[in-house]
Amino acid sequence: MKHIYALLTGLVFGTGIAVSGMMDPAKVLNFFDVAGSWDPSLAFVMGGALVVTFIGYRLVWRRNAPLFATEFQAPNASVIDRNLIGGAALFGIGWGTAGFCPGAAIPALGTGRWEVVLFLVAVGVGSGLRRGLGALAKRQVIL
């Protein structure tokens, strides 16, 4: 039941990504190209999503627990550090270079485009690289 629920949730999210234009790199890059072929559509995506989550989350949190888990888990870290700012800065550079972000590329896999596969493999490599470096740094601290 939990897995069917998760699948349907993914379907809702993915359909939203597909309809919104988020999985179209031409549109995403134009959103950022204020000085050129600017297309402000993606501001409406963000607006629509935030209206629903802002209200929806607060309604959901009135419950004691989720439907298929024992508790609500949200990151409670509040430290603004170099990793957060550097990571976000890099993320933006990559997003502005490729035109895809992971949340858009996963549903875009369903279109069967090879560019999407290439992007997600590259994301996996970058993420693995960061994990490897992080583990290495930790080991040096211990030694």
């Binding site: 993914g10 234009g21 963000m46 439907l67 888990a69 609500f72």
Partner: peptide
């Protein structure tokens, strides 16, 4: 409209799996 569905997906995940 797509944004609304994206938000709904996020809310459903919080509701179901927290």
């Amino acid at each position: 409209g797509g944004g609304l569905a994206i938000g709904l997906g996020a809310v459903l995940l919080m509701l179901g799996l927290g």
